[in-house]
C-alpha cells in the first residue's frame, strides 16, 4: 500500500499545480489568455476610446495620459499614436491631436458596445457591480456593430448605462452628459445622482459600499477641503473629496413625486405605508417580479411578519402576504401612512 504521507504530499502537490494553472485571474492559463487578448487592434481601440473621452471632457490628450490609460510605456504610446495617424484615425493639428470622422465613428462604436454590455450585465445577469467594467472592457472589442444593434434591441434601446453614462446611438448621437461633480454642487439643495464613475475600481467599490446609485436623492450638508457630508437615501454619508469627485449630481426634473421618503425596510411590524417608487438600483428580473407582485407607486402596504432572524420581513400588499429580504426592501421607497395623511 502507498505510504500515507507520500500520498498526501503527492495529492497536495497535484492540487497546487492545478490551482497554479487554472486559478481565476492569477493562474497561468488565465494570464496567458489575457496576454493573447492584447493585440494591436485591441490597443488601438482602447486608444480611440481614451482620445474620445479626452475630447468629450475637454482634457488635453498627451502621450503620457494615453500611456497611463493603456498601461503601456510612453514610447509604445507614441508609436501607437503615429501608427493611428498613419491609418487615418487621427490627425494632428497645431498643438493637439483630434479624431478624424472615421476614428470618431469607431471610437463611438467601442463606447456604445462597452456601455451596452454593462447595461446587459446589470439587467440580465447576476454579475456583481464591481465586475461590470472589467467584463465590458473585454466584450467591447468582440461585438460587431450588428451584434451591438441586436443587443440594444433586446435591451429595449437603453439610453444610459447602469452608471448613468449615456449610450451613443447607432448613428453616434449621445445624450448630453448631465450633472456636475458632487464637490462643486450647492449646499442644501434637492439633487439627485445622475452618474457614478466606475474607474478607478477602488473608488467605485467605496461608493458602492456607501450604497450610492444613479437616481438617488441627495442633499449636500457640508463641503470642506477635507470631507463632503451629505444625506442620501435616508442616511448621512461622509466622503473624502477625491471619492466624492466621482459622483455627479443634477437638480431633479420636477415630476411631482414627493421627495421626502423612507425605505420599505424602515417600517416596523404593524406600520403602514405607500410605495413611492422602486429605485433604479433594482433591475431586470428582480424589478419585473416586484412589479408583478404589485410593488408600484401608490400601492398601500403593511409590515406584518418578521422572521425569527429579523430578515426577511413579510408585507401585506394588495391582499397578499409577500416576504422580501432587507436588501430588496431597502430599494423600495415609501411614505409612511401618517406622513401620507
Amino acid at each position: 500500500m502507498t505510504e500515507p504521507l507520500v500520498a498526501l504530499v503527492a495529492a497536495l502537490a497535484l492540487l497546487a499545480a492545478a490551482a497554479g494553472l487554472f486559478y481565476p485571474r492569477h493562474g497561468v492559463i488565465p494570464r496567458w489568455r489575457r496576454a493573447r487578448q492584447q493585440t494591436r487592434r485591441v490597443r488601438t481601440e482602447d486608444a480611440l476610446k481614451h482620445i474620445l473621452g479626452c475630447e468629450m471632457s475637454g482634457d488635453r490628450l498627451t502621450v503620457n495620459s494615453l500611456a497611463g490609460a493603456l498601461q503601456i510605456t510612453s514610447d509604445r504610446a507614441a508609436n501607437l499614436l503615429l501608427d493611428m495617424e498613419h491609418r487615418g484615425l487621427l490627425h494632428g493639428e497645431s498643438d493637439s491631436i483630434r479624431l478624424t470622422p472615421v476614428g470618431r465613428q469607431s471610437a463611438l462604436h467601442i463606447l456604445r458596445a462597452h456601455r451596452l454590455w454593462e447595461r446587459y450585465l446589470a439587467d440580465e445577469t447576476g454579475v456583481g457591480e464591481l465586475e461590470w467594467h472589467g467584463q465590458a472592457e473585454w466584450h467591447e472589442h468582440q461585438l460587431t456593430s450588428e451584434e451591438a444593434e441586436a443587443l440594444a434591441a433586446r435591451l429595449g434601446n437603453p439610453t444610459h448605462d447602469p452608471h448613468g453614462d449615456p449610450i451613443p446611438s447607432a448613428e453616434g448621437e449621445m445624450a448630453p452628459h448631465a450633472g456636475i461633480p458632487l464637490i462643486s454642487a450647492a449646499v442644501d439643495e434637492p439633487l439627485h445622482i445622475v452618474h457614478i464613475e466606475d474607474e478607478p475600481q477602488t473608488v467605485f467599490a467605496q461608493l458602492l459600499a456607501e450604497g450610492l446609485y444613479p437616481g438617488m436623492e441627495v442633499r449636500l450638508v457640508e463641503t470642506s477641503p477635507h470631507r463632503i457630508r451629505f444625506w442620501a437615501g435616508g442616511d448621512e454619508h461622509v466622503l473624502a473629496p477625491v471619492v466624492a469627485a466621482n459622483v455627479y449630481v443634477a437638480r431633479p426634473a420636477d415630476d411631482g413625486r414627493d421627495s421626502v421618503g423612507s425605505r420599505l425596510s424602515d417600517l416596523t411590524r404593524g406600520e403602514r405605508g405607500q410605495v413611492v417608487e422602486i429605485s433604479s438600483q433594482c433591475r431586470g428580473l428582480e424589478r419585473r417580479r416586484l412589479q408583478d407582485l404589485g410593488f408600484l407607486p401608490g400601492a398601500e402596504l403593511q409590515a406584518e411578519l418578521t422572521s425569527p432572524g429579523g430578515d426577511p420581513v413579510a408585507y401585506r400588499i394588495r391582499g397578499a402576504l409577500i416576504a422580501l429580504r432587507k436588501e430588496q426592501a431597502d430599494l423600495i421607497r415609501i411614505v409612511r401612512a401618517e406622513q401620507a395623511a
Binding site: T125, G126, G284, E286, A314, L321, A323, L324
Partner: peptide, 15 residues
C-alpha cells in the same frame, strides 16, 4: 460558477 446567473428573491406566504 453560478456568479453570473440572475438572482432574485420573493416568497409568498399564502393563506
Amino acid at each position: 460558477v453560478l456568479k453570473g446567473e440572475v438572482s432574485t428573491f420573493s416568497l409568498e406566504l399564502p393563506p
